[in-house]
Amino acid sequence: MSSNQSVLVLEAGRAERHYWRDLWRYRELFFFLAWRDILVRYKQTTIGMVWALGRPLITMLVFTLVFSKLAKLPSEGAPYPILVFAALLPWQFFASAFSGAGDSLISNAGMISKVYFPRLVIPASAVIVSFVDFLISGIILVALMIWYGFTPSLRIFTLPLFILVAFAAAMGAGLWIAALNVKYRDFRIIVPFVVQFGLYISPVGFSSSIVPEQWRLLYSLNPMVGVIDGFRWAILGGDTRLYWPGFMLSLSLVMLLLITGIVYFRKTEKTFADVI
């Protein structure tokens, strides 16, 4: 045993000085939890992989049919299925991370009331699970590009940056909903509503360029608008233009969401064990 052990002091309302170091120490738990959820998901379903691929594929087909064939909306030069799918990827990541994180603390209530670890690990690993699904669905996008003989421009190399933004948005919203859900259980009802409603107010089935110019800044108050536009800009290349004021607005809102999410989560996490 080392002689110079650090002394841990527990006091009411005392901020955890070693919180981030602790979080780093528990990184293995974080991977184990994500690994458990992925393993369990694919163990229980016989067609697990097919399910992860089928859902976005069917959604894409329906959206293409409705928005392109019936509503005859413009496709910005790229095949409409690719236009839809470039948006569906980040949207489904966000939606599943949001609802996954929202439920994560409640479904791990047993662990929270019996063991200490930085609680941030739980919603974060729920987001990771959704991220794995996101990567799997990415295969479809590649397949679509090959099918249509679509070659992306060099802008595709900026995609990781936009993935990072999508990650931040999912994490921020996920932390908020996770913490709120512990205290006020009615947020459980709000989650499916946000996910469903968000699909319509985000430019998933159509390009945000059809939104009239004077409304675009207002439209960008939805942080997912910036994320989706960024994805399209990176993937589709060509004529797609990024509406910079709107993107910057979305980006700042994502950052705000993430920072306030972390602050709120950290403020409430010490009482989780008492109320859960």
Binding site: L10, A12, G110, K114
Partner: peptide
């Protein structure tokens, strides 16, 4: 797992707690 309402605890060294078998 939960924080005190008042008072202070100082702990030297790593704590492992076993409040339930098979948590998780």
């Amino acid at each position: 797992i939960t924080e005190p309402t008042s008072g202070k605890i100082s702990i030297k060294g790593r704590v492992a707690s076993l409040l339930e078998v098979g948590t998780g």
